[in-house]
Design a protein around this nucleic acid. Sequence first.
DNA 1: CGGTGTTTAACCATCGATTGATCACAGGCA
DNA 2: TGCCTGTGATCAATCGATGGTTAAACACCG
Lengths: 347, 347
Amino acid sequence: MVKHRANIKDVASRAGVHPSTVSRVLNPATRSMVSEDLAAEITRIANELGYRRNPLASGLRTQKSYTVAIVIPDLTNPVFPPIVRGVEHTLDAHGYNAILADSGSKQRSEKGIIENMKARQIDGLILAAARRKDPIVNDCIEEGIPLVLVNRTVDNHNVAAVINDDELGIELALKHLIELGHRCIAYIGGPQNTSTGYTRYRTFLKMLKTFDLPVDRDLIVNAKAYTEPAGQAALEHIMGYEKKFTAILTANDLLALGCYDAINEHGLNCPMDISVTGFNDMPYVDRFNPPLTTLHIPLDELGVQAALLLLERMQNPGALAKQIRLAPHMVIRESTTSPAENTPPNK
Amino acid sequence: MVKHRANIKDVASRAGVHPSTVSRVLNPATRSMVSEDLAAEITRIANELGYRRNPLASGLRTQKSYTVAIVIPDLTNPVFPPIVRGVEHTLDAHGYNAILADSGSKQRSEKGIIENMKARQIDGLILAAARRKDPIVNDCIEEGIPLVLVNRTVDNHNVAAVINDDELGIELALKHLIELGHRCIAYIGGPQNTSTGYTRYRTFLKMLKTFDLPVDRDLIVNAKAYTEPAGQAALEHIMGYEKKFTAILTANDLLALGCYDAINEHGLNCPMDISVTGFNDMPYVDRFNPPLTTLHIPLDELGVQAALLLLERMQNPGALAKQIRLAPHMVIRESTTSPAENTPPNK
DNA sequence: CGGTGTTTAACCATCGATTGATCACAGGCA
DNA sequence: TGCCTGTGATCAATCGATGGTTAAACACCG
């Protein structure tokens, strides 16, 4: 005889009441409709029987699934796991489950993901890598699915998001390099269809002016993607001009890693010949050769905040779309040094 | 007017048939109960209306959710993301969703996770880091929840699992070190309550005999956990004996990383003074200083196979529990070298 | 043409929880 | 005593899909 899981009817009959009464007791919002004594008694019996609400049945009736989806482009990018973990833990603490959708190599279009989400009555969506004009965002808004962006945002500022302060980040990195004595600073940015790529690029240009540094277009390249090969290719491109520069400010740790490759290819040394800064402080960059000077972003916290924001929005879908912005800080390691000792990169 | 998602009744009334007829048509197993012509017509209409089965309702009725849980101890350990990705993609291709349960810092007991899974009608479970005697495994078996272990297995061999060939791995690593000329080889293993920790340790001892090397217990330590601090502590412990050794074989990349720390602390150099091998070839170990010689495990493939195995078991729960074993191979980088040039570690 | 056998599709209860409508009953007040 | 009010619990419909059972339609045959 299979010990079948107690359902609401079991609890009701055991307590000698109607299932609906049990339902009301167990739902905080309706508990007041039932007398205190009975409520206590029913709660006791429910615990005794080990009753758990069946989320499928409940969800069918209420159109809620207590499940949210996290869409990320590639879980193996070390930036995302901490975010996902932060999201997952926070949601879990609130009784929500997280289903993971790695959109990267997914053959289904993003539209397909949304379809799936809708069919499954997903209560909300966390999108970890939106593009600046991302159709998925409009889909969500049209469909009325609560959405929170994390890490990157979109041009339309009416979407809730948890991002980091890119302006501050670029400023900090540039300041750091300037303080070390660098004047000729190359920039390798990210794809311009991402908010981070765009903002960091614009800020870099602005900050050059602010700090009264020369702007040389040949030293500024936006990589095609936030990947090592793209970073390497970008730096190769810059080096092709054979111009002098003593430092590279990159918009992303993986791009910085690509720079390492290009620098090594040319028989040069980081940081002796060229200083490099990253962005994100993803796990293990302190282990690289050399350990990367970069901007630390509280990735866990990003995830936690995104989850909280989503919970808030699911409770109150009409609320104004908040944008939360976390401040990065500089972590100085060994990929940057003063250019005094630099030999100019030559070929 | 909200354009509400077409349900089975909409399709039925549009086709002028009863909902159950539609249901039968859309279920491959029962399609034969309906005439071909009508089936075709219903399929056409369903597509036209963009009908998607509601998994909640369907699951409520059939006790299936088309959802699988992946339980991992810590997503930020770089070993797991590739596995998770492999699992997720494979499941997705078969119409299943994956919900992620990061058990590590989860306050709920593992029992709690199982409870949650059961309540949600989870169809199956993939457990990425079982301990050798893991209560969760028995729970699953008792509850009849299809279960597949990945990466680690349990003592009870009646459980489906996808693991890698630990014996082969240790043999390859040891052979590599011996071929370089090492004779005094330390070993830093993992927790003995994990199958990997246990098997690798036993195999190391066995292989020492096979290769006719001396067994010095002082050079053999099993770390408390697969973490960098634990690896560092283990090596510190070994170094406390001030015995000679020229290489360390570790059972895990993170342990190897901890060894780097201890080696550096003592003012020594890897590989010049001490060679180190890892195990797993987790992402970015090729970037470390020095790039780590380690055993490559096809982590993605591990995930894919685990997902396939689970799908199989969910279809046919009675089937025999298969164990799949993937072969690792050696990736030689710069953390190992011949001891000829070594200066013996002294203090 | 009536009887039997076989498809084919409709009917309806069901999964478990929720909720608007409804009823029972106690107490208050004239 | 009779009527009203309000609290507290029950009734019954519902969410969408499914599947065992049953009715209808049709073919076949003596």
